[in-house]
């Protein structure tokens, strides 16, 4: 397996995440798509670390950080989603228009 495969996997995963985030109507789905993009970045970190600096662990460490931060982010995101849901009784983002200027 070479680095290109990993980077291709990561890019595919990221694009799937972007696509999901742009197209899902359900806000939970959007959050999940965002998780995909995180993990695409994590794959990149681990792969580049493995191939460019085989002795180092900085990439893996950073990936671990991102995983934990993503978990925290999901907690915040889900609680925000809950708050919004209680206010608007919907999980479809096209119904959210608080940012409308």
């Amino acid at each position: 397996m070479n680095l290109g495969s990993y980077v291709a996997l990561s890019a595919a995963l990221f694009l799937i995440g972007v696509f999901g985030a742009l197209t899902r109507r359900n806000i939970i789905g959007i959050l999940m798509a965002i998780e995909l993009m995180f993990n695409a970045a994590n794959i990149n970190l681990a792969a580049f670390n493995r191939y460019l600096h085989p002795g180092g662990i900085i990439g893996q460490t950073l990936a671990l950080f991102i995983i934990s931060i993503a978990a925290a982010e999901v907690v915040v995101g889900l609680s925000l989603v809950l708050a919004i849901y209680r206010n608007t009784d919907t999980v479809y983002v096209e119904d959210y228009n608080l940012l409308k200027g």
Binding site: A21, V93, Y96, N97, L98, L99, K100, G101
Partner: peptide, 11 residues
């Protein structure tokens, strides 16, 4: 552009 749709902004 600004009709408050968050996905539009993301786009």
């Amino acid at each position: 552009v600004a009709d408050g749709q968050v996905q539009e902004y993301l786009l």
